[in-house]
Design a protein around this nucleic acid. Structure first.
Lengths: 126, 126
DNA sequence: TAACTGTACTAATAAGATTAGTACAGTTAG
DNA sequence: CTAACTGTACTAATCTTATTAGTACAGTTA
């Protein structure tokens, strides 16, 4: 199922995230279905459990999967929608910009204020 | 003049950039005026010449200072405008990205969290 | 020519991100 | 209750990248 490419340059945990999302979008994994357990996946791709856990936790934070104590992780109800909304590029672009701003000495508060402002007002043209 | 704080966590070269820009904005350094030479500044703040050179080169690339062969670096004609514009462009890029994220339904809190994360890294005191 | 200017190049070091080792605590199911 | 599972906490090793230093060089000025 999962296919990790060590020589790709991409960190393993993010490969897991990407592939999981792709499985969900393509219907290999459907809402409510259980994911491989942290340990079983870690064994099957020869990696430390924490590496898988890191990937699952990020997916969990986004709301794409949910944790059921003692049973494992399951695809959430609106996983597909969340994945489509959370497009990687946007967050990446955000990070790049914010990093630059930090480097330039812009205070965190200035950025937070700007974000708040945008979310306050209704639709607007760019 | 220049005041480097080794324990600030911020790299020396970017402290030099920030302070130079601040000197220009506040009128301590005016258009056409000569900056400290790479070597003299490197000595006065006890740092390698290349560290100062790196800062000056970045400022040069932005067009904030200009190099005159054999004479040194000088504050450019429109240094102030460039400094202000640069920060304008960063904020603009931020706004564009955040607007898109809002449009795709990403929650404000997710963005704030992401910004916080970036500002957490390597910042004990500030 | 002597005293300056910035720069090239490599190596050392520091900082950060990623992964592993290992042990733990909770839940489930027989 | 126990055995077999689940995820997680914590620290350390590792790998990668960013930053700074050492040093020598080439050009310009006066």
């Amino acid at each position: 199922m999962y296919q990790i490419d060590l020589s790709s340059g991409k960190p393993i945990y993010s490969q897991i995230i990407e592939q999981t999302e792709s499985f969900i979008l393509s219907g290999v994994l459907n809402k409510g279905e259980k994911l491989c357990s942290v340990r079983s996946l870690s064994i099957s791709i020869s990696v430390n459990p924490n590496t898988v856990a890191r990937a699952y936790n990020e997916l969990c934070l986004k709301g794409i999967i949910v944790s059921m104590a003692g049973k494992g992780f399951f695809v959430s109800e609106n996983a597909k929608e969340i994945i489509m909304k959370n497009s990687y590029e946007l967050f990446d672009s955000l990070r790049q910009t914010v990093k630059k701003m930090k480097k330039t000495g812009i205070k965190k508060e200035e950025i937070l204020k700007e974000v708040e402002k945008i979310y306050l007002r209704g639709e607007e043209n760019d």
